[in-house]
């Protein structure tokens, strides 16, 4: 198996990416962001990383997972346990180990990867829910339904912004690399037709294992950062079905299978959630449901699809304009 280095990502895209990351890095100091908005942006970074990683599996390979919360929870609790050790492990190391633990956990799902389409999705619901029950029951490790509290000081909370930014930037870059490399093409082939892909020499099993493990590591690391961010975690939230749905929703809102869609989706999701939880907490599940229904029916590529459609309309108009002026 060979992986060719991705063909050049356009220079303007690299430049734009560097500019955005740099702008975000100086934003807290330059704009004198309030603690509230800073925390909101940090949360957005985490959700962006998680959504992009879900999309590698759900979008690039086309295996929709309703169980990513299990990976998020494993990463989060392993990291939390390491940070609670005496003496505490350095946070970045704890996050990394948490991510690797989630990666190892995902390899346990190897036999599931030969399931396709709805069978895979349903199996992930089973794994996710079983994991939630098992980890809630395992009180020595997760603290049961009373959860774990982490000693996170303000300084750590400030630094989390930059750790989150770094993670999100890395994951965005990784998404581009995966999509543009031969691996990305092979994933597309697997998504279109596993058997045909295997016929032309794509190692479907290995590629899916690889991508699932990568996705798990990133989601696990995100879980660790999230644990530090909230400084209190409990299995019902970390492993909850709502959390699994969140990963799905963010990608669907932004555009499943696109490179940058989930970034948009995650931002919209975080803002929407903040607004709904504050104003209409009793409506927010149902509104997400309606959103899903409308997106699937009218714009399966979500916000990305909408943007493409708008761009198409604008292009058509600008092209037609001169002709009309002639007439």
């Amino acid at each position: 198996m060979t992986f060719s280095w991705p063909p050049l990502v356009p220079r303007w895209a690299v430049a734009a990416f560097v500019l955005v990351v740099a702008a975000l890095a100086v934003a807290p100091a330059a704009l004198d962001l309030s603690i509230y908005s800073r925390n909101l942006v940090t949360l957005a970074f985490l959700m962006i990383s998680g959504a992009l990683a879900w999309n590698w599996m759900g979008g690039f390979v086309g295996q929709v997972s309703f169980g990513h919360a299990a990976l998020f929870g494993v990463g989060g609790f392993v990291a939390a346990r390491l940070m609670l050790m005496e003496p505490p492990a350095p946070a970045p190391l704890a996050w990394l180990v948490g991510g690797l633990a989630a990666g190892v956990f995902s390899l346990g799902a190897h036999p599931m990867l030969r399931l396709r389409g709805p069978y895979f999705s349903i199996a992930t619901i089973g794994v996710g829910e079983a994991a939630r029950l098992l980890f809630t029951y395992w009180e020595d490790f997760t603290g049961g339904s009373s959860g774990l509290s982490l000693p996170i000081d303000m300084e750590m909370k400030d630094r989390l912004y930059f750790w989150g930014l770094g993670l999100a930037a890395l994951v965005v870059a990784a998404s581009f690399l995966i999509r543009r490399s031969t691996l990305g093409l092979q994933l597309l082939a697997i998504k279109a037709d596993v058997d045909a892909a295997a016929d032309v020499g794509v190692n479907a099993t290995f590629n899916q294992d690889l991508v699932f493990a990568l996705s798990a590591v990133v989601v696990g690391i995100t879980g660790g950062l999230y644990a530090a961010y909230f400084s209190f975690i409990e299995p019902g939230d970390m492993f909850g079905f709502d959390r699994s749905i969140a990963f799905v929703l963010m990608s669907v809102i932004g555009g499943v299978g696109t490179v940058l869609g989930p970034v948009l989706g995650a931002i919209v999701f975080v803002l929407l959630r903040q607004f709904l939880l504050a104003s209409y907490p009793q409506l927010y599940l149902g509104l997400y449901g309606l959103l899903l229904v409308f997106i699937i029916l009218f714009e399966p590529l979500g916000l990305t699809g909408l943007a493409l459609r708008l761009a198409g309309a604008v292009r058509k108009r600008t092209r037609r304009a001169p002709r009309e002026s002639l007439a």
């Binding site: 309703f66 997400y288 449901g289 899903l292 229904v293």
Partner: peptide
């Protein structure tokens, strides 16, 4: 899957 999942969420919320 996603569409009918959305329907489920709506039913639950209702």
């Amino acid at each position: 899957l996603l569409l009918l999942f959305g329907v489920w969420l709506v039913l639950r919320n209702a």
